[in-house]
Simulated scan of single mutants.
Amino acid sequence: MTLLLDSEEGARAWIGEAFAPTARQWQQLDRFGAMLVAENARQNLISASTIPTLWVRHIADSAQLLSFDRDNEGLWIDLGSGPGLPGLVVAILCDRPMLLVESRKRRCDFLRAVVAEFDLRHVEVAEAPLERIETRPASTISARAFAPLDKLIGLSTRFSNESTRWLLPKGRNAVKELALLPEAWQRMFHVEQSRTDAESWILVGVGQIGAKQRGK
């Protein structure tokens, strides 16, 4: 049974137990949270109602994706990264190369500001629609709030290979969206409960959807 995180203290304690952050990583997570709240007053990055539970709803919610993918070491691509959720949280907690794909300039400006302040040299910000991003092989593909599942996979499968790990939080509609996919696509995934919401789910998959599968 998944341990649900229902308090800010609980979220911080789980991150400490799961990832054993260094003092510098804790400092960066705290600073990132503060920067996120401050920037939210200038542009809508997160719902204002979630600010009092920032560590549960955003920091731990992002960090839990890393817990499903600790063995990989290659490129992680975060689609529609927005304010860096989950990409920047993951990048603070590990040094894997990270590509944050975001098409909106103001959000990219925020991402670059965080990357520069924290000296996250393993992080690249790609300011462009996904369709214009040069194809490169990804070990992991994540997307927290990017597109409907069928469109998401269709647009991003060119970055995947047979060992690519897909980490796709889809909220309460995860099972429903998965059921609408062609059977060949469905077989790639299983469903994991979110640690931050008893009614939210994460699609975890491994593999690549080829042209023949897309046609089925």
Rank of each mutant, 00 (worst) to 15 (best):
D95R: 15
A198Q: 15
L120A: 11
D6V: 14
N44C: 07
E199K: 06
P83V: 02
R132P: 11
R70L: 08
E39S: 14
L45G: 12
I133P: 09
G154I: 09
Q208N: 15
A63I: 06
D69Y: 07
R195P: 01
N40H: 05
A184P: 08
A63P: 05
R132A: 15
L29C: 01
E8M: 06
G207T: 06
Q186D: 15
I153E: 02
S47I: 12
R107V: 10
A116P: 07
G10N: 11
L155K: 14
Q43T: 13
F159V: 01
L3S: 00
L178W: 14
D30P: 06
V89Q: 04
E39K: 10
A116L: 03
K176H: 14
T164G: 08
L149E: 08
A38T: 09
D95L: 06
R195I: 08
S163D: 13
H190N: 07
L152R: 05
E117S: 00
K105Y: 11
Q208S: 14
L4Y: 11
G84T: 02
R107C: 14
E17K: 12
L29D: 04
Q208H: 15
F189L: 04
I209H: 13
Q186E: 04
L178S: 00
K176C: 09
E131D: 14
G215F: 13
R214W: 14
D71C: 12
R104V: 15
A128Q: 15
L130V: 15
N173P: 10
R70M: 04
R12W: 07
D6H: 10
H190A: 01
S139D: 15
S163R: 11
G154D: 11
V114Y: 04
P83R: 00
E8G: 03
L54A: 02
P182T: 12
S62P: 13
G171N: 03
A63C: 07
L111M: 11
K105L: 13
K216H: 12
A198G: 15
G87P: 01
F110D: 13
E102Y: 08
D6Y: 10
A128V: 09
E102F: 06
V191P: 03
L36Q: 04
A41H: 04
E177A: 03
T135N: 14
W201A: 04
A38P: 05
D78G: 05
L167H: 00
L178R: 09
A34H: 12
E8W: 03
P97N: 07
V191Q: 07
P86L: 00
D119I: 09
V115R: 02
L54M: 02
I51E: 07
A116R: 02
P83C: 01
L181Y: 05
V123T: 07
P52H: 00
E8K: 02
S7E: 06
N173K: 14
A91G: 09
I77Y: 04
V206P: 02
W14Y: 06
P129R: 15
A20C: 10
G16N: 10
A60Q: 06
L149I: 06
I15M: 13
G16F: 07
